[in-house]
Design a protein around this nucleic acid. Structure first.
Length: 387
DNA sequence: GACAATGATTGACT
DNA sequence: AGTCAATCATTGTC
């Protein structure tokens, strides 16, 4: 990509032409001084030689002065001066010397050029963007992962697909913005690099610019743009995280169970009123029937037990309804409301936790206590019939 | 908006 | 680990 010599234009090659071999700059400098030495040895004129030497130094001083002041001048003046300097007879020699000095100082810089290890933070950001489906091929793997993570903890609500599409569309927006910006940055980086390289090529005609220096400059530019890209990646990651947390929060919101699900749970509860503690298997079956998770079933039974116990009177009507329903269903050979907890129902006892329910003081007086007893008997009958 | 209903969470207990 | 009890936060109804 970067060529070794042509970048310096006619400088070093011409300079080398003045010397003998090897170190172009020093030989060029020697060649500048040589005439005075040779001539003082009894050439055409010793005085003339000395004058030549002085004249040469004046030339160099003049050139250096012009270079030093070139930035203070207007663009047109500088352009004209640049041209004049390029054509100056001493230019190749001076150019070579500067090249050599630069080469020497460049050695120390070369050593300081470290091999940049890949930034671990950048790696993390890249990995995350890839996992979230923002970077890499468009497939929405991350979205699917987020969706599955969310649904595994909550249970699928009827409008979950709606939220999925909402999440996906938001993620796709982020993805689109990310790629647009990334492309913009890359384009800007390329343009800026080209611009700087052209500038350096141009400058290399009047000052020594080594290919290595250009390489370094390009590397610096790339580093700068890379840090901008890192910022972009960081912002994108933050946006994804916010979106994701919002999505998860939204799913964590309480949703009332469907009427059908509540019906199934209530049927189990009132038909097992003597021992409303479904086994793990029963919970799983109920969860399956209701389209909720096992922990949601546990929550529901926990709440139901406590609320029922707290206010039996309030639940009386409901209890009667379900007791009648299940009893009727069992008599007709209808097995719809029963769950596979036959082991539990078969061994119901009136002691232990069940006593808690039977022994609860009635808020509605004796009538409620009597009804409770009836319900218990109905429930037991129902279970026996099912078995 | 007030209120009841209800699903979820939390800490203590067994 | 499962349950109870209190509580929170949201939803549904009026």
């Amino acid at each position: 990509m970067l060529q070794q010599q042509p970048l310096t234009g006619n400088g070093p090659s011409n300079g080398r032409g003045l010397g003998v071999s090897g170190h172009p700059g020093m030989h060029a400098l020697n060649s500048v001084h040589q005439p005075s030495q040779h001539r003082s040895d009894g050439g055409e004129s010793g005085l003339e030689g000395t004058e030549n030497g002085h004249e040469t130094r004046r030339d160099i001083g003049d050139i250096l002065q012009q270079i030093m002041t070139i930035t203070d001048q207007s663009l047109d003046e500088a352009q004209a001066k640049k041209h004049a300097l390029n054509c100056h007879r001493m230019k190749p020699a001076l150019f070579s010397v500067l090249c050599e000095i630069k080469e020497k100082t460049g050695l120390s810089m070369r050593n300081t050029q470290e091999e940049e290890p890949q930034d671990p933070q950048l790696v993390r950001l890249d990995n995350m963007l890839l996992a979230e489906g923002v970077a890499g091929p468009e497939k929405g793997g991350g979205a699917a992962a987020a969706v599955s993570a969310a649904t595994s903890s909550g249970g699928m609500s009827p409008d979950s697909s709606l939220e999925h599409s909402d999440y996906k569309s938001k993620l796709s927006q982020i993805r689109s913005i990310y790629h647009t910006e990334l492309e913009k940055y890359e384009q800007a980086c390329t343009e800026f690099t080209t611009h700087v390289m052209n500038l350096l090529r141009e400058q290399s005609r009047t000052r020594p610019v080594t290919p290595r220096e250009i390489e370094r400059m390009v590397a610096i530019i790339h580093r700068k743009f890379s840090s901008i890209q890192t910022q972009l990646k960081q912002s994108t990651c933050e946006a994804v995280m916010i979106l994701r947390s919002r999505f998860l929060d939204a799913r964590r919101k309480r949703r009332n169970f469907s009427k059908q699900a509540t019906e199934v749970l209530n049927e189990y509860f009132y038909s097992h009123l003597s021992n409303p503690y479904p086994s793990e298997e029963a919970k799983e079956e109920l969860a399956k029937q209701c389209g909720i998770t096992v922990s949601q079933v546990s929550n529901w039974f926990g709440n139901k037990r406590i609320r029922y116990k707290k206010n039996i009177g309030k639940f009386q009507e409901e209890a009667n309804l379900y007791a009648m329903k299940t009893a009727l269903g069992a008599r007709q050979g209808d097995d719809s409301p029963h769950t596979p907890n036959s082991t539990g129902s078969g061994s119901f006892s009136l002691s232990g936790s069940a006593d808690m329910f039977l022994g609860v003081p009635s808020v509605n007086g004796e009538q409620s206590a009597y009804q409770m007893q009836v319900l218990q008997i109905v429930s037991l009958f129902r279970d026996l019939l099912i078995i």
